[in-house]
Design a protein around this nucleic acid. Structure first.
Lengths: 235, 235
DNA sequence: GCGAATAAAACCGTATACTGAAAATGACAT
DNA sequence: ATGTCATTTTCAGTATACGGTTTTATTCGC
């Protein structure tokens, strides 16, 4: 998914992107170029450029005090899902049609890890396995533009996903949808994959919306109103 | 569409992005950070960061000698259109449903400019008016993520669009499709807009493919085989 | 003159330095 | 305690500098 590459910016970018996918960076964390640079024994600039790139791609926002993961509004969630609904069912159908036996095995392996993690309530493992499942089927999408766009849209939800998986009931429902998609992949039925992915999209949207709604409410009650953020634009 | 903003990177980015939309940067041009910086009397870094951002977004590629507009392969074109087909008909339908009278007027005004430019064979004006038409209806799309994604995917074609519009016959067909979409907008019929946009997508894909095919052939006959490109990755 | 070797230039990646603005901290008054 | 104001700190943005690599220009041998 990401290149190792020989230049520092790409290396830092790939590292941060991975952490974001795994929800390893919390909304309260602040990423500062000098810190990242010091941790690697390099200068500010490459770290800064990687951060800036993540900002321009919409994963981070620049605050006046370091960079933070972007928090999604309810409208963001609805809007992002509207796009996902247009793309993912179709892409998954293509994947089901075109996947090789190797990729099919990868998908199944990821699905097994998902279910194992769920049964053990191992949230980090669940997050990782979930990413793996997605990446596995996306590998069978032979349109790189489609795959990259989908990847990107999914990654926006990293800040909410943690909340979704933390609640066992929600996580169970989510994984159930995933497992139904997996079954359709096993059946090699593109149309079934497409339909189930469509259903999954709606269910996931609901789940994310309700989790986020709760998050926002909690934040509201905690502090009446405050916090100035934002500074740099996303263009 | 783009922010003026107060920092230099964003200013340069917006400027370059606009030039790219208008096909004002040719594939043979080479963008160099120091040049851009000198032209504005600033240092390399902001220019460099803007260029890097355009690279990461896929508009430019880094060569060993400056940055160049990305040239699309035939597969790129097919892949990009596969995504556009999923998004634009739906988005345009939403736009037709939700547009205000002001936006409708803007769309019509842009369409008029398109037809005027076509009748006068004024290619630059045609390019600009085409961009205006697109931006006008995109304004009525109240999902910013959808609009931004579409904008981005359309902008990838800047290097090919010039070739499409240069040929009067192709341009005529292209504009004809546009005008049919416009008529559907005027009729306030979301479904008609959706269908015509779908048709337009297929026609446009064909047009771009044939133009690009010709371009590649000409390049082939001109020089048997050469040119090493690429250096930086797009992640 | 023409091709190979060598010198010069161009340009990217990275490092370091400076500046100004915003936020945290703390002093002080109410 | 609470609010206001001044001080300090932190960090983003920009500028400048250097090294290395690739490309172009130049020189030399044939």
């Amino acid at each position: 998914m990401l290149k190792p590459s020989d230049n520092l910016v790409d290396a830092i970018y790939a590292d941060l992107r991975l952490k974001l996918q795994r929800s390893a960076i919390l909304p309260t964390d602040r990423l500062v170029d000098t810190e990242i640079a010091n941790a690697r024994g390099i200068s500010r600039m490459p770290a800064r450029e990687a951060l800036l790139r993540l900002v321009s791609e919409g994963y981070l926002v620049g605050t006046t005090r370091g960079f933070a993961v972007r928090e999604l509004s309810l409208d963001d969630i609805s809007g992002l899902f509207e796009v996902r609904r247009q793309l993912e069912p179709r892409a998954a159908a293509c994947a089901a049609r075109d996947m090789t036996p190797e990729i099919e095995a990868e998908i199944t392996a990821a699905m097994n890890r998902v279910e194992l993690a769920l049964s053990q309530s191992d949230i980090p493992a669940l997050l990782a396995a979930n990413v793996d499942f997605r990446n596995a089927w996306l590998k069978a999408v032979n349109n790189p533009h489609m795959a990259a766009t989908i990847s990107r849209f999914i990654d926006y939800f990293q800040s909410v996903r943690l909340g979704t998986f933390a609640d066992p009931a929600t996580a169970g429902l989510y994984i159930d949808g995933l497992s139904r998609i997996h079954a359709a992949f096993l059946a090699h039925d593109p149309l079934m994959v497409q339909d189930r992915m469509t259903l999954f999209m709606f269910a996931a949207e609901e789940a994310y919306l309700s989790v986020r709604r709760r998050q926002l409410q909690e934040a509201e009650t905690a502090r009446p109103a405050r916090r100035r953020i934002q500074k740099r634009g996303t263009a």
